[in-house]
Simulated scan of single mutants.
Amino acid sequence: MTPDGLRDLKDGEETENYPGGELREKSFPSRGDLVLYPFGTVSAHPFSFPFRSMKDISNALSLRFLPLLSGEENVEIVPWVKKTGNGPSVGAAFCIASAEIPGGREHGSPADHHSWPLPLALASAVNGSGIAVYRDGQVGASAVFEDGVPLLCRSGVSAQWNTDDEIRLCREYCLAGEKEALAAEPRVITGREELLKAARETVARFPEYLEIDLSRPALDAARARERTARALWRFSAAAALFGAVFCLFQYTLFLRIRSSMDLLVSEGAAIYRETAGGTERIVDPLSQARGRLAALKGDGDDGGTLTGFLAHLGSAWSGEKKGKDGLPVLEQMRYAGEGADLTGTAPSMESIQALRISLDSGGFQATLGDIQQVPGGGLRFSLSLRRRGE
């Protein structure tokens, strides 16, 4: 908390003995402690936004401090949001010159300690609402709090630091903002031990302050998390958009298939009524049509069996034999369910053709196959007999 470095706030020691009797300024130990910096450029700016997204809060603060950010000197804006349930985002933004932010490497990693502006430790001295001023040697700080939110922060290291001037400035700030109640009883803290006690009580009573860390590694880590969150948000948005488009396509396809099925059912019913007539209730046109065809076909004893084939064959042969000589001789018949194949001999081609014509009747179709000359005279033929339509 000195102009040239840090000192341990827990035991108050500023130097320690090194081998050889050399005295050096004691470096800050890396054991999860709190570091209070008297930043000369830090300032607190309260805000209240109707949204809770940290991305939106950062964008709103960037617009608010655009004139400040466009200057020659780089300025860091560190937002802090007080946990208030599901209401609006209430908190404060700490503005500080980039050159004054500690690097943190020589004092441990960001997980080892929290770097606070010195005025923040005074919150417990006024129970989170009021004016608090600190002075110890050349180090001074002042702050105005309201319900745990810092409204004004001032600190620095100067021999000209005057407690009365700081109290008057803080009161003028409260009166200008119509917050007279905060200026009623200013609290003045002097000495390191009293500041140490106030800092410990502030950590205990306002644990949400531990989210504030004005060190370079902590700010870089916060920016990395924000970039990762934005990338994940973009990926999630793209995935959600793709999913919505895919669902819309699937729903459209489902409607088209359903419409096609309804059209098929209606057209099938119309065709059934047109061909079959009647006033029966149509549930499954295809099954009902099959039933009607089966009823029209009968019991199947219409010549499609072996008996029907033999009867037709005998009728054709006996009709061909009347008044004629040289009737073809049947030598072989191979029967299957769909028809029969005949093989035989005949003295002439005219006899074969007459047999074919006689068989090609009565619902049967006769097809002449291979014809060969046999030794000693005569012809060998093959003939296929089928029911028409099979």
Rank of each mutant, 00 (worst) to 15 (best):
P38Q: 06
E211G: 07
D56K: 12
R7L: 12
D262T: 14
C247A: 15
V78L: 10
S109C: 01
A346D: 04
A229S: 13
S266C: 04
E350T: 13
D8M: 04
I271R: 15
S358G: 14
D4N: 08
G104F: 09
L120C: 04
T305D: 15
Y37P: 02
F235H: 10
P88Q: 12
P117F: 08
R192V: 07
Y209V: 03
R200I: 03
K324M: 09
L306M: 11
P328V: 03
F242S: 11
D165T: 13
D299Y: 08
G362C: 04
G21Y: 02
A60L: 04
E73S: 06
I212K: 00
G376A: 11
M349N: 02
N162E: 15
Q372G: 03
C174V: 08
G71N: 10
T305M: 05
E73C: 02
E201Y: 03
N74H: 06
D325V: 14
A93P: 06
E73K: 11
R292W: 05
A221K: 09
E338W: 08
G156M: 07
P347G: 02
A121P: 05
A181F: 06
G87S: 13
R192F: 12
F249M: 07
A123T: 01
R205I: 07
M333W: 08
W317E: 11
L169S: 14
S27T: 13
I257D: 05
L306P: 03
E338K: 12
R7I: 10
L34H: 03
G130F: 04
V133F: 01
P117I: 07
I101L: 11
V126L: 02
M1W: 00
A276S: 13
A289M: 14
R216Y: 02
L383P: 02
G32C: 06
F249D: 04
A237Y: 00
G91T: 04
G303R: 09
G314Y: 05
L69R: 08
F249C: 07
G314C: 09
A311D: 12
I352Y: 02
S62P: 00
E338V: 10
A237T: 06
S384L: 12
S266M: 09
F254S: 15
S287D: 10
K297T: 07
R31N: 13
W116L: 04
F381A: 00
E338L: 11
S384P: 00
A93E: 08
P217L: 08
L263V: 01
D33C: 03
F364R: 10
G156R: 08
S155E: 06
D220V: 10
Q250T: 08
D213H: 10
I96K: 01
A311F: 08
F246N: 09
E208V: 03
G21A: 00
P150Y: 01
G277R: 07
E208C: 03
A44I: 03
M54L: 14
L286N: 05
A240Q: 07
F249L: 10
A295K: 10
V90A: 11
D325R: 12
L69D: 04
Y134R: 14
S351W: 04
G277A: 03
R356W: 01
G20H: 06
